[in-house]
Structures are given as C-alpha cells and as structure tokens.
Nucleic acid binder design. Structure first.
Lengths: 138, 138
DNA sequence: CGCTTGACTTAGACATTGTCCATTGTAGGA
DNA sequence: TCCTACAATGGACAATGTCTAAGTCAAGCG
C-alpha cells in the first residue's frame, strides 16, 4: 500500500488527498470495483471528492501500469489492483462477481501465424464465464 | 441469408420489413457492427426505422442464438453474425477493428479444478489485442 | 517560512450507448 | 376483408464516461 504511494511519488506524481484516497480504496480491498464503487468508497473518506477526479485518477493509474482496466461485462469498466502478476478472470454470468485465475498453457502461443492477419499481437485476455456457487445454488 | 430468414420464420418470428432489413444488414457484411452502425445501414434501406426497433431486433437475434454479442471494448457492443461456428477475436487496440480467429488448444481445459472456486464454468472467451497492419504502419 | 506557479480538483454540462413506455401501425390467421 | 396480438415508433429516461472553465493547492524556491 504505502509501496504504491511511494512508487507513485517516485515517478513525480503530485500527491493530493484525493489521489491518496483513491489509491487506498483500490489497494484496500482486493476486489474489482467499478469507477462508481471507487467513488462511493472515496466519498466515505473524503466527502468533497468529485466524480471527475476519481475517473482521472483511475485513468492515470491505468496509464502508469499500477492498475488494470477490465471490461468483463459491457456495463461499467472495473479496476483491478493486481496489475503486477499476469492473470485472467472468471466471471459469474448472473451476479457479475469476478475472481482472478491462473490457467495453465499460453494462449498467445496458440494463435498460429496464419491466424494473425498481419497484426502485431501483444496481449491476450481470457475470460471464463459460469455460475458462482451462490448463483448456482439459487 | 434467406436461410436466416427462413429459420426465423420457422420459429414463429413474425416477419416485418424492419426485421428483414436488420437481418439482411447483419448477414450482408461479415464484419462486427455496433448497434448504431446496424441502424445507420438499416436506415439507408428503410428510412423510417427507429433506433429502438434495431436494439430490440438485435436483442431478439441474440436470444435466438442467431447472432453473438461481443464486448471487445468497453464502448458499444458489437454483433457477430457468425454465431454457428465457435471462434475468438483479434482486436486492434487503436482502431477497434475485429477479426475472427481460431486458436489451437482448449482454454477450458487449461483451468484446473483448483482455480475454479466452485464455479460451474461453461464458457470461455479469448480476446487477442494488438495493432492491425494499418495502425502499425501509421 | 511564505510566495509562485503549474498541476490538480471541482461542478456541471455534454456525449454516447442503451432501455422503457405509451401510442400507433400491421402481419397473418379466421 | 377484418381482427387482434404482436411489432414499431419516438421521445423521455438511465448509466457511464468525458470535457471545460474556473478555482485551489502541493511543492519547489528564495
């Protein structure tokens, strides 16, 4: 946590109360929050923080590579603080809850040259979908 | 094409000019259009068609399994008429263009039981990202 | 320690994408 | 041909995100 703040400061990030709160919220719970959820939690600590600042700060954290943006549903983007270890996602098709998973195998290697259409392929995301235990029981 | 219309009629779909136009647009170009792009092309053939009807019709085609919804970016959903053959997607990180691809390997088998967290996993989507030839050249 | 300055924050307007609803229209069977 | 249930319309509304102009403040400097 203070790790994160130190890293950011070391990169010339100007430290403000707002940015600290956003970083703390992300680092506090290792879940995948939407921008609005981050905002709600930030407001609880710093009532006057604005939506625009939360969006700006999240965008900067993504640019800096400290946080990943994941679009597992077509609703709001979610922000994944676990940016430093490669992983994929397992999403509940009903309630939308997300777990980080680590499949074996290397999907990048599974795309033959003939299927690359001249693209410079740099990245792959794997999203597993299914029902979580709670939703499967219901 | 008329295949599609026949299948739909066979399932009791009431055929209207609007639905026919939407189905034809999707089937005509095998690209991944957004709802708005479908609407624009539909308007070219049937000027009075409304946005709501296009959304409704696309939703019905998805429900019927004739078309896939893909959310490769967090902007608009795209509609994939190639619903009957399993495939994954290769997306240009800059311009958003999409190609269907067929990687080797079976990512579902690559998720060990210990990484399933009790989920009933039923589906996996793989999205490759990179730069298309045009964007890489620019 | 108190300026200065440019980066940061704010509030709210705006944009995009999608959904809903009440009304009007029409496909297809009787 | 007429009826009627299903479909289409258009406009309001909702959710998410972006932009801007003006005010505010962190942090370096004297």
């Amino acid at each position: 946590m203070s790790d994160l703040l130190e890293r950011l400061r070391g990169r010339g990030w100007r430290m403000t109360a707002q940015r600290r709160v956003v970083a703390e919220v992300l680092d506090g719970e290792h879940v995948h929050l939407t921008a609005d959820e981050v905002h709600a939690r930030a407001v609880a600590r710093l009532p006057e923080i604005s939506r625009a600042t939360v969006y700006n700060t999240l965008g900067e954290l993504v640019t800096l590579g400290e946080v990943l943006e994941v679009a597992t549903d077509q609703r709001a983007k979610r922000y994944d603080p676990n940016a430093h270890r490669p992983h994929h996602h397992l999403v509940c098709a009903r309630c939308g809850s997300i777990r980080d998973v680590h499949p074996t195998g290397n999907p990048l290697a599974d795309l033959p040259e003939s299927e690359r259409f001249g693209f410079m392929v740099s990245n792959v995301e794997v999203t597993y979908r299914g029902l979580c235990p709670d939703c499967a029981a219901a």
